[in-house]
């Protein structure tokens, strides 16, 4: 049985840990709100962009853009693996990484790009030491643009046949799920959801200079924006996961403190009882 002193030290250390986890929980809670607000601000842009895309796809008879054709046959797919830069958020990052690993296992030759320090480290560990990588923090718009430019170049040159994004989605405040989605090629059936609007006669919509030209300008923007909004969602999901993880850690530290406190009280009481017994025994021996 540990001594009273050992137990007291353990309680002190547990309390320190608990203070840290509690502080991180509060920080995460504040940051979720900010991240969610940032995400919400992208909605008007997102909505207008998909409306425009729908109008265009409805207007263009023969779509001829590299993004809307199947990639080169036999070319490997590229996966953009997106995680947070930091950990301490439960299984948040490892869930995404695991999905990436299983994708690579099913599709040999997969080429990786990473966004987020955790994804970078994981990919280096599993045999992609020099893939292209960006961090999640910093100027997200600039990063999204850089990633889009890089994968676009590799796609149009035929080095890769498809672009897949694996990242976290925020299902609810309490749950995040890793999701795999194909970004390129964008096939007509992917836009099925937007066909409704396309079917609506948008009147004699005029395109400047031509629908094909506007579409060719819009598709890369669509890719950039999808990456940008995925980065914002990863941010929000990360803080949500961290909030839960830190909340659990704080509770567990509390439980451990309670248990150690009881053990310490028992040990202290046992020491007192033992001392008393010794005194009584001594007195009895003298009286005897």
């Amino acid at each position: 049985m540990p001594s009273v002193r050992e137990l007291r030290d353990r309680i002190r250390s547990l309390k320190n840990t608990q203070q840290i986890t509690k502080a991180m929980k509060q920080v995460a809670a504040a940051k979720i709100r900010r991240a969610e607000a940032a995400q919400k601000r992208t909605r008007p842009y997102a909505q207008t962009l998909s409306e425009m895309l729908a109008d265009l796809v409805g207007a263009v008879s023969a779509v001829d853009h590299p993004f809307m054709r199947e990639g080169r046959v036999g070319a490997p797919a590229a996966v953009i693996l997106m995680t947070a830069d930091k950990g301490l958020a439960g299984a948040f990052n490892s869930n995404v990484i695991r999905l990436g690993e299983s994708y690579a296992a099913q599709h040999p030759g997969t080429r990786f790009y990473s966004v987020g320090v955790k994804a970078r480290n994981a990919l280096r560990r599993i045999g992609h030491p020099d893939h292209r990588t960006w961090t999640l923090g910093g100027d997200k718009l600039a990063t999204a643009r850089a990633v889009a430019a890089e994968v676009t170049r590799d796609f149009t040159s035929g080095d890769i046949g498809a672009i897949v994004l694996i990242s976290s989605t925020l299902v609810s405040a309490m749950s995040q799920r890793p999701l795999q989605r194909r970004l390129v090629p964008i096939l007509k059936e992917d836009l099925a959801g937007t066909q409704e609007r396309a079917a609506k006669p948008s009147g004699a919509l005029e395109f400047l200079p031509t629908p094909e030209f506007v579409l060719a300008a819009l598709l890369p923007k669509y890719l950039e924006f999808t990456l940008y909004s995925a980065m914002l969602e990863t941010d929000a999901a990360f803080f949500a996961a961290q909030l839960v993880a830190m909340s659990n850690a704080t509770d567990n530290a509390g439980k451990a403190i309670d248990e150690s406190t009881i053990a310490m009280n028992n040990a202290r009481q046992a020491a007192i009882t033992k001392e008393l017994l010794e005194i009584v025994a001594g007195a009895e021996a003298l009286a005897g």
Partner: peptide, 19 residues
């Protein structure tokens, strides 16, 4: 500024989508 030059839009402009 569109790819074809500056374009001024007044109320009741014809439906247009420009880069």
């Amino acid at each position: 500024v569109t790819t074809e030059g500056e374009e001024g839009i007044l109320p009741r402009h014809a439906p247009l989508l420009a880069a």
